[in-house]
Every structure is written in structure tokens, then in C-alpha cells.
Computed example of a mutant assay.
Amino acid sequence: MNYWLVKSEPESYSWDDFVKQGKAIWDGVRNYAARNNLAAMQLGDQVLFYHSVVGKEVVGIAKVSHESYPDPTIPEDPRWVVVELEPVAPLPKPVTLQQIKAEPLLQNIQLIRLSRLSVVPVSGNEFECILALGHAQ
């Protein structure tokens, strides 16, 4: 199993919107590196849902429910792909970017190193560390 982090601006599409929908086609990615990450996602992979711009925090866990296929919003351009995601659970306590930057185990997380990408891989240890931070009282 692989682990990922996807970003969404909560004013455009929030965790609550995602939960209400029950699943989502993750589209609109127009960066080649982020596109390659989408294409690498496999059925059942775990995904951290991150609110970018406003909040800047990991707020929930999702899973890949359908592997990549051509982006239906632009059928004339086969370079771009989408995946389908389903919400699994909110984090009991959101994990802020400040907490992530302060955590020694997360110093190499791509959320920080490649901050402009909207889809990044996360190691198993990084994923577990963020879950632990999200469950800390």
C-alpha cells in the first residue's frame, strides 16, 4: 500500500464537501509531477486530505476507490488523469502545517519540500506520524 497527501482549498472544496458527496473525482491537476503522482495511485491507497491556503492542516483520511483514468473534463487532452477518492474518517484533531514543520520525523515530507504540488507521496512512517498527531489530546 502507498500513502499520499492531496491538497484542496477549503473555500473551493472542503473536507465537509467531500464527506457530503461521499466520493470525488480528483480532477483539475495540471502539473506534470502531481499528475504522475495521481497516475501512481492504486486501489485502496490511503490519502491524507489537506486544507491549503486557509487552515493549512491535515483534516481527514481518504482512500483511492478508482485508479487513474483520463480526465473527463478535458477529453481532447489525454495527458491529464484523475482518480476517485472516498472519505474514510476525519482526524479527531487537525494537524497543522506548523505542527508538521516542528515534528522531527516529518522534516523530509514532500508537503514541505515540494510545497507547490497538490498531490504528493507520503511515506508510511510520515503517514503514521500525522495520524498520531491527529489523535493526540
Rank of each mutant, 00 (worst) to 15 (best):
L48W: 06
V6N: 00
V19P: 05
V119F: 09
V95W: 03
S123K: 14
F49Y: 14
K63M: 07
L111V: 13
L38N: 03
I61T: 09
E9L: 03
A24Y: 02
L131Y: 04
P121E: 04
L48K: 04
V81L: 10
Q98Y: 07
V81N: 12
I74H: 11
R113Y: 11
P94M: 15
R30F: 01
V119L: 11
D77I: 07
G28Y: 00
Q46N: 10
M1S: 04
K23F: 04
L43G: 11
P75K: 06
M41I: 13
H66Y: 15
R35P: 05
E128Y: 12
G60C: 10
V81F: 09
T73L: 08
L85A: 01
W4N: 00
S14T: 04
Q107R: 13
S68C: 14
V122P: 05
N36I: 08
V53E: 06
K93S: 10
L114D: 11
V81G: 03
S8D: 01
P75Y: 03
S115G: 12
V54D: 06
E9I: 00
L43D: 14
G44K: 14
L38D: 05
L133I: 15
P75S: 02
S14A: 06
V120Q: 05
E11K: 07
K93M: 08
A132D: 09
Y32A: 07
Q107K: 15
V82H: 02
H51R: 11
I74P: 00
A24T: 11
L131T: 09
D27T: 05
L131G: 01
P70M: 01
N2K: 05
E11A: 13
K7P: 00
L43M: 14
E128Q: 15
Q99V: 04
S118N: 11
L48P: 04
V120S: 02
E103V: 05
V59C: 14
V58E: 02
D71Q: 10
E11D: 12
L131W: 00
A62T: 06
Y13V: 03
L38C: 08
V53I: 09
D45M: 03
A132L: 15
K23G: 03
N37K: 02
S65H: 10
Y3W: 09
L131D: 06
A40Q: 13
E126R: 08
A102H: 00
V19W: 06
V81K: 12
P75C: 03
F18E: 01
S14F: 07
G28N: 04
V120C: 06
P121W: 05
Y50M: 03
R116P: 10
Y50E: 10
Y50S: 05
D16W: 01
P94A: 15
S14E: 07
A33W: 02
D17F: 05
V83C: 07
W15K: 04
W80E: 13
I130W: 07
E67A: 15
P72M: 08
E11M: 11
I25F: 00
E11H: 09
I61D: 08
S118G: 12
P121D: 10
Q42A: 15
F18D: 00
Q99P: 10
W4D: 00
G44S: 13
I25S: 01
E9C: 00
Y69N: 02
